[in-house]
Computed example of a mutant assay.
Amino acid sequence: MGTPVLNLLLERRSCSSLGEPAPDEQALDVIFRAALRVPDFQRLRPYRFLVASGDGLHRLGALMQDAARQSGLADEIVDRALGMPKRAPMVVVVAAIHRPHKVVTPFEQQLTAGCAVMAMQMAAFAQGYGGIWRSGWPMFNRTLHSALGLAEADQIVGFLYLGTPTAEPKNPLPGAEWASFVQWL
Rank of each mutant, 00 (worst) to 15 (best):
S16I: 09
P85I: 09
G163R: 00
S180Q: 15
E25G: 11
V104W: 03
I97T: 15
L36S: 15
R134Y: 05
R48F: 13
V30M: 08
A151N: 06
V92R: 05
G128F: 02
V157A: 06
P100D: 07
F41M: 10
M1E: 11
R142K: 04
A88M: 08
E177F: 07
N141M: 09
L148G: 13
H58W: 10
Q70L: 00
M122K: 05
Q70T: 09
A67W: 08
K170Y: 03
V51K: 11
G56I: 12
Q42D: 13
L18A: 02
V104R: 09
G61H: 12
Q26K: 13
M84E: 07
E11H: 02
M118I: 05
G158L: 13
S53N: 03
G128E: 12
M90D: 03
G2M: 11
R99C: 11
D29K: 01
Q121E: 08
Q26S: 14
L18H: 09
P138W: 02
E20A: 15
W184Y: 14
G114N: 00
S16P: 05
V103R: 13
W184P: 00
L73P: 08
S53H: 00
V38R: 02
S17W: 08
I132P: 04
L9E: 00
H98M: 00
R45Y: 07
A167Y: 00
R142H: 00
W137T: 04
G158I: 14
A52W: 05
V30A: 15
A167M: 05
L8W: 13
Q110E: 15
Q183R: 14
V103P: 08
D55I: 05
L60E: 06
R43P: 02
G72I: 14
A34T: 09
Q65E: 11
D66H: 03
I97F: 07
L162P: 02
M1R: 07
G114V: 10
V92E: 11
M122S: 13
G149C: 10
M139V: 10
L148W: 01
L44W: 12
A27F: 08
C15M: 10
R48G: 05
D24M: 15
E108R: 04
M64Y: 00
S71N: 01
C15N: 08
T164R: 09
D55S: 09
L6N: 00
C115Y: 14
R45K: 03
Q110D: 11
L36M: 15
R48K: 13
A167C: 12
A179C: 08
L9M: 15
G128V: 10
I156D: 01
M122V: 10
S180D: 15
I31P: 14
G131I: 01
L36P: 03
Q127L: 09
D40C: 12
T112W: 01
L160C: 14
R87Q: 06
R48W: 03
D29C: 07
A52K: 10
P169E: 02
E25N: 12
S16F: 01
L185A: 11
P172G: 05
Q121P: 04
K170C: 04
P174G: 02
A95F: 03
Q70S: 02
G163L: 05
L28K: 05
L50R: 11
H145G: 13
F181I: 10
P174Y: 02
Q70Y: 07
S135H: 13
R48Y: 06
Y161P: 06
M139D: 12
A52N: 03
S14C: 09
L44G: 04
K86E: 13
K102F: 12
